[in-house]
Write a protein that binds this DNA or RNA. Structure first.
Length: 136
DNA sequence: GCCAACGTTGGC
DNA sequence: GCCAACGTTGGC
């Protein structure tokens, strides 16, 4: 199993919205960046993703699971980009903030820290587990 | 194919 | 709300 982190602006699509969706499942669409799109393509069914709120909150708030692998996004006129389907698994007991992550030297290599503008990124298993541990 | 101009993202 | 970083676009 691989691990990832996906970003969303909570004003646009929040963890709460994800949980209220039918079957807690939705399309992770709207990604219009080549690198992020490549990461979406590399996802496999069953992979877990940290759900991160950008902007005001800046914290990992929950975990989602990939339930459908990459397929074309009909909303993309260029035909270059696609999406995956994700399902809410569970919320973090306590959100893990960007501040906490940046304060931890073990996360220096994390794409979240190194590439602040990337919206879909891989997370190694160790870091994934550590973030879960930090959430309580 | 290069690069300047421009737009967008996201942390602060 | 500002601005730095960076991706994309379009003229040449």
């Amino acid at each position: 199993m691989k691990y990832w982190l996906v970003k969303s602006e909570p004003d646009v699509w929040s963890w709460d919205d994800q949980c209220k969706a039918k079957n807690q499942t939705t399309h992770w669409d709207g990604v219009r960046n080549a690198q992020a799109s490549n990461n979406l393509k590399a996802m496999s069914k069953g992979d877990r993703c940290l759900f991160y709120h950008s902007n005001k909150e800046r914290a990992v708030v929950g975990i989602v699971e990939v339930v459908k692998e990459f397929y074309p996004d009909p909303g993309d006129e260029s035909g270059r980009f696609g999406m995956v389907d994700v399902k809410a698994v569970e919320p973090l007991k306590n959100p893990v903030t960007l501040k906490q992550i940046k304060a931890e030297p073990a996360f220096e290599q994390l794409a979240l820290v190194r590439q602040p503008r990337l919206s879909v990124m891989p997370v190694d298993a160790k870091s994934f587990k550590q973030i879960i541990r930090m959430s309580g």
